[in-house]
Write a protein that binds this DNA or RNA. Structure first.
Lengths: 164, 164
DNA sequence: AATAACCTTTACGTTAACGTCAATTTCATG
DNA sequence: CATGAAATTGACGTTAACGTAAAGGTTATT
C-alpha cells in the first residue's frame, strides 16, 4: 500500500518540454532555478532536471509575476510564502504579515488598472464620436469608413459592458 | 481677451522639482524624453526644460505603465494614442484599433490579478487556521500569539471583504 | 555499443532602464 | 555683474533577465 502511493506520482517532463509548454526557453527556466525560484528533481546532481506538476504551478506563478511587473526577486519572496514551514509559529506569523502586504499591493494594482481602463474607454469613445461626426457630415462617406464604424462600435461596447 | 488666455497658463516647474514630486531622478525623466515619451517646453533648444500640467499627466501614465510591467516602448505606444491627429481619419482608425487591443490586455491583467488575489487570500486563511489551532491546543498559549491573532484576523477580513 | 538527440555547465554577450561622473551653461540673487 | 546653485550634454558604468555559443555528459533508439 505504501508502494501504490509512490507508483502513481504523476508524470515528469524535461526542461525543453516545460519550456515549450510555456513558450519560453530552457535557459530562462535554468535562470529561475539559479535565483532559487525553482528546484526540480534530479536522479543525480549531474543528470537531467525533471519537472512535475508542482514545478509547473510555480513556473506559472513566476510568469504571472512577470506580467505584473514584479521582479524575479520579488516573485521569489511571494513564492517563499507558499512553502513556509507550517510548524514554526514565528515563521507563520511573518508569512501571514508578508502575505497581507502583498494582498494590499495587489488591490492597489487592481484599482489603478481599473482607472486606466476607464480612462482609455472614455478616450476611445471620444475618438469614435469624432469619427462618427466626420462620417455624418461627409456628403459622400467612404464605404470603408462605414464598415469600420459598424464593426467597431459593437466591439467597443462589448468591452465596455464587461463587468470587471 | 486673447491676452488673458495666455496669461493664466499654469505654472511650469523645473526637472528636479518634477523629479522630487514623483520620487524619481532627473536622469530618469531625461531618459523618458530621450525615448520620446516626454517633450517639455524650452525657451531655447539649449535652455532648461520646463514642465507643465500636461507633462505631469504623461509622467504619471509612464510610471503607472511601469508598475504594470509595460516597457517604456509599450507605454510610448499607448501615449501616442492620446495625441493622434484628430483630423486624419485613417489615423483615428488605427488609434481606435490600438486602443481596443490595449483595453483587452488590461482586462486580462485585471482578471489574472483577481485570481492571484483569490489564491493568496485562501492561502492566508489556511495558514491563519493552522496558527489558530496551534493556539487552541496549546495549554499555555503565548500572549504575543494571542495578540497577533486578534489584530490579524480583522485585518485579513477587511481585505477579504473589499469589493474589487 | 554506437549514434543522434538532448541535456549539462561555463562563460561571455546583449538590451532596457537607468546611475554616475565630468565638463560646461544657464539661472537666480545679492 | 559676479557667483553659487542648478541644469545641460556627453560618456561610460551597472543591474536584471535572459541569449548564445562552446565543450562535454546523458538518454533513448537502433
Amino acid at each position: 500500500m505504501g508502494a501504490a502511493k509512490k507508483a502513481g506520482e504523476g508524470k515528469k517532463i524535461t526542461i525543453s518540454e516545460l519550456a515549450e509548454e510555456f513558450g519560453i526557453t530552457p535557459r530562462a527556466i535554468r535562470y529561475y532555478e539559479e535565483l532559487g525560484l525553482l528546484c526540480p528533481h534530479r536522479k543525480s546532481p549531474t543528470s537531467q532536471r525533471l519537472y512535475d506538476e508542482k514545478d509547473r504551478v510555480r513556473l506559472k506563478l513566476i510568469l504571472r509575476g512577470k506580467r505584473f511587473g514584479f521582479s524575479l526577486a520579488e516573485t521569489r519572496e511571494i513564492l517563499e510564502l507558499y512553502e513556509a514551514d507550517p510548524t514554526e509559529r514565528r515563521q507563520i506569523q511573518r508569512t501571514l504579515e508578508y502575505g497581507l502586504e502583498h494582498l494590499l499591493e495587489i488591490d492597489e494594482k487592481i484599482d489603478e488598472l481599473k482607472e486606466l481602463r476607464r480612462e482609455m474607454l472614455e478616450f476611445a469613445r471620444r475618438f469614435l464620436k469624432i469619427l462618427e461626426s466626420m462620417a455624418e457630415e461627409d456628403p459622400r462617406p467612404d464605404p470603408r469608413l462605414r464598415k469600420f464604424l459598424e464593426s467597431y462600435r459593437p466591439r467597443l461596447e462589448a468591452v465596455a459592458k464587461r463587468k470587471i
